[in-house]
Design a protein around this nucleic acid. Structure first.
Length: 235
DNA sequence: CCAGACGTTGTT
DNA sequence: GTCTGG
DNA sequence: CCAGACGTTGTT
DNA sequence: GTCTGG
């Protein structure tokens, strides 16, 4: 079968962080707000996007680790330890995906239909540089695309609901198998896509123009509603 | 044992 | 740090 | 993820 | 084509 032109999944995202200017175009290696569970409660701190394993010699490895596949997290040397002990949430108003069409890359902005922010499942890590300085970094966990995402890409970030936050963040839960049910595609129908101006394609560009609707490209149509089905993902 | 990798996406 | 390939 | 560079010698 | 910077 010939699929529509492909996409990417880097989840360049929008972030509105209290007391900081809003960001509309966060790229890997840039700081993103991440929330984790500390003994004193939940804390949000800026972390470098792109996880740097504690054993890394070179900071550059982080650029390749912006995402972590949920299916294999538990066995990857780069993610295993963080998965067991350092899970986090990464809040965002939305994220982008691109579809390559005739030598062009058409970006789409994806947000919740209900207007609330998203909470991506993430992992974080502390890396000690050669000069002994510490750098905290994070990665976003991915899973298969849900119905709305399928027209633009076959993967999507794991998006958690408030009722799931505690379990995901609990540092005392070091049993990966008990977390499998959290790492599923978001329920169908919860997201909306909007084709936007390719201003966002340049990482140096910032501001609301990144989510300005594109005049010439329509939102891709979703496949028809599936028939009534068994509950495969037991929520 | 030592040396070298350690990742995701999408592309063909 | 830990695993894999040689 | 996307955009942009992709090099050496010698100069300040 | 592949790597780097953002």
């Amino acid at each position: 079968m010939y699929l529509p032109a492909q996409t990417i999944a880097s989840f360049f995202l929008i972030l509105n962080e209290p007391d900081h200017p809003p960001r509309y175009n966060i790229a890997p290696t840039q700081p993103v707000l991440a929330v984790f569970q500390s003994p004193a409660g939940r804390r949000g701190v800026p972390m470098r996007w792109g996880l740097i394993p504690h054993w890394a010699r070179d900071i550059k490895i982080g650029a390749k680790l912006a995402n972590a596949r949920s299916e294999t997290l538990h066995e990857k040397p780069s993610f295993r330890t963080a998965f067991n002990r350092r899970r986090c949430l990464i809040p965002a108003d939305g994220f982008y995906e691109w579809v390559a069409v005739k030598g062009r890359k058409q970006p789409y902005f994806i947000r919740r239909r209900d207007g609330n922010p998203l909470a991506f499942a993430g992992l974080w890590e502390v890396w000690v540089a050669a000069d002994q300085s510490e750098l905290v970094s994070c990665t976003i966990v991915t899973t298969a695309a849900n119905r709305e995402m399928t027209p633009v890409h076959h993967r999507m970030p794991v998006i958690l609901e408030p009722g799931q936050f505690d379990r995901w963040l609990d540092p005392d839960n070091q049993n990966p198998r008990s977390l499998c049910d959290l790492m599923r595609p978001m329920r169908d129908g919860g997201l909306v896509l909007q084709a936007v101006d390719d201003y966002v394609n340049r990482t140096g560009n910032e501001g609301p123009r990144c989510i300005e609707p594109a005049a010439t490209f329509p939102t891709p149509s979703s496949p028809p509603e599936p028939p009534a089905q068994m509950n495969l993902f037991e929520d």
